[in-house]
Amino acid sequence: MSVKKTIVRYNEGLFQTVEDDIVTEFPLTIYINNEEFATMVCTPAHFEEMVIGFLASEGVIRFRREIKSLKIDEEAGFAYIKIDGTINTQRNFSKRFIGSCCGKSRQFYFQNDVQTAKTSTSTVKLTAQQCIKLMEKMQEVSQVFKGTGGVHNAALCTNDEMIVGRADIGRHNALDKLYGHCLLNKIAVRDKVLVFSGRISSEVLTKAAKIGVGIVLSKSAPTELAIELAEDLNITAVGFIRGKSFNVYTHPERIIQEPEE
């Protein structure tokens, strides 16, 4: 997922020619029933997971079994999918829909988000120390980021352990890969935690709601709209997990004090 390139590095008054790891960027075009559907610019790894997670998050499928065939041509950069029925490949996926969310406030969604984003029913709770430890575990295994600094990292976790981690140049792609992994391996997500390296934007929060988790942990900050969406979708958003501190922005009842010894 990275290549070596010769660069010129400046450090403390000196220029030096060195070899550096550069993250790979790769376009993958998806065809559904022989019609072009979308092109994703991604890190070339875990293609099947990413495609399945993307189609599920867009509402094209709900389960892996709905895909009759899936072929990835990595050399040419194409994914060919067969599903039952037809799909409107001319659909405007960027058209906004303004509606009420859980009857609380008016929010902005893409049209397909209205049907696929789920209000969380998770009863999972984390201690403060578990939040910090899960972020540390995700960062410890992020080898591509350590080598290149050019990817987003995401992980699906239990209270104490990381189940699976994925990296990609696109934050949405990293989340789609996790979603696809869950669908392929029939992993229940309602009792899981999403750990993320980047900013919690409204789109990232909506993607987490589509996956179905109830807690999102991030090293970075949330946006105002992401906080509003998290409130409405019953998702606990935790940001700025750095060192021994963090901020809880929504539904703080899921983040609890350490048990007394």
Rank of each mutant, 00 (worst) to 15 (best):
V3W: 04
K5T: 03
T6W: 02
I7A: 07
V8K: 15
Y10P: 01
N11Q: 11
D20W: 08
D21N: 14
D21H: 07
V23T: 11
F26R: 12
F26E: 11
T29I: 03
Y31Q: 06
I32W: 09
E36Q: 15
A38F: 13
M40H: 04
V41S: 02
C42M: 05
P44E: 01
H46E: 13
H46P: 00
F47A: 00
E48K: 08
E49T: 00
M50Y: 00
M50A: 08
V51L: 05
G53D: 12
F54N: 11
F54H: 13
S57R: 07
S57H: 09
E58A: 08
E58Y: 13
V60E: 10
V60N: 07
I61S: 07
R65G: 05
R65Y: 12
S69K: 10
L70I: 08
I72M: 00
I72G: 01
D73E: 03
D73M: 00
E74S: 05
A76T: 13
A76S: 12
A76F: 05
Y80S: 05
K82F: 05
G85N: 04
T86L: 10
I87L: 14
Q90W: 03
R91C: 02
R96W: 02
I98K: 09
S100F: 01
C101I: 08
C101Q: 05
C102Y: 06
C102N: 15
R106I: 14
Q107W: 07
Q107S: 14
F108H: 12
Y109M: 06
N112F: 04
V114N: 00
T116N: 02
K118I: 12
K118M: 10
S122C: 04
V124F: 06
K125L: 06
K125M: 14
L134P: 03
M138I: 10
Q139M: 14
E140C: 02
V141T: 13
Q143C: 06
F145V: 06
F145H: 13
N153I: 08
L156A: 01
N159D: 12
D160E: 15
E161Q: 05
E161T: 10
M162P: 01
I163M: 08
A167M: 11
D168A: 12
I169Q: 01
G170E: 00
R171L: 01
L178I: 15
G180W: 04
H181K: 10
C182L: 06
L183R: 11
I187A: 08
I187C: 04
A188L: 03
D191P: 04
V195K: 01
V195I: 08
S201L: 01
S201P: 01
V204A: 10
V204N: 05
V204H: 05
K207L: 13
A208E: 03
A209N: 08
K210A: 08
G212S: 10
L217W: 07
L217P: 07
S218K: 05
S218E: 10
S218L: 06
A221N: 15
E224P: 06
A226I: 14
I227L: 11
E228C: 07
L229G: 06
L229W: 00
D232L: 04
D232N: 15
L233H: 02
A237W: 07
V238M: 06
G239I: 03
G239E: 02
N247D: 15
N247E: 14
V248A: 04
T250M: 01
P252I: 04
E253I: 00
E253R: 04
R254E: 05
I255P: 12
Q257A: 14
E258M: 12
E258S: 09
